[in-house]
Lab assay of single mutants.
Amino acid sequence: QTVHVKGVQYHFPNPEEAVKFALKVAKDLGGRVEFHGDEIHVE
């Protein structure tokens, strides 16, 4: 599972961890989380 944050990719073997990370980052940055297939983008 890959999380993209402002052009940087973070790889997580566990999808659940990836989602938790993405939600935390989005909250910290005041952004939103978008799901694109296997990828999660924080915009």
Results as ranks from 00 to 15, higher is better:
T2S: 08
T2M: 07
T2P: 03
H4A: 05
H4P: 01
V5Y: 10
K6Y: 14
K6F: 15
K6S: 14
K6L: 14
K6R: 12
G7Y: 04
G7R: 04
G7Q: 05
G7M: 04
V8Q: 11
Q9E: 11
Y10D: 00
Y10T: 03
Y10S: 02
Y10M: 04
Y10W: 07
H11F: 14
H11P: 04
H11I: 09
F12P: 01
F12C: 03
F12I: 02
P13W: 11
N14G: 07
P15I: 15
E16R: 08
E16M: 11
E17G: 05
E17H: 06
A18R: 00
A18E: 00
A18N: 00
A18S: 03
V19W: 15
V19I: 15
K20S: 09
K20T: 08
K20D: 09
K20N: 09
K20A: 13
F21D: 02
F21R: 00
A22C: 03
A22I: 02
A22F: 02
L23V: 11
L23N: 13
L23H: 13
L23A: 08
L23Q: 12
K24Y: 07
V25Y: 06
V25E: 05
A26R: 02
K27N: 12
D28S: 11
D28V: 12
D28R: 11
L29N: 07
L29E: 06
L29I: 14
G30W: 06
G30T: 04
G31V: 06
G31Y: 12
G31E: 03
G31Q: 04
G31A: 11
R32C: 05
R32E: 05
R32F: 11
V33P: 03
V33Q: 01
V33C: 08
E34F: 14
H36A: 08
H36D: 08
G37P: 04
D38W: 09
D38Y: 09
D38F: 10
E39P: 02
E39L: 07
E39Y: 08
E39K: 08
I40A: 03
I40D: 01
H41T: 08
H41Q: 04
H41S: 06
V42D: 01
V42A: 01
E43P: 04
E43L: 15
E43H: 14
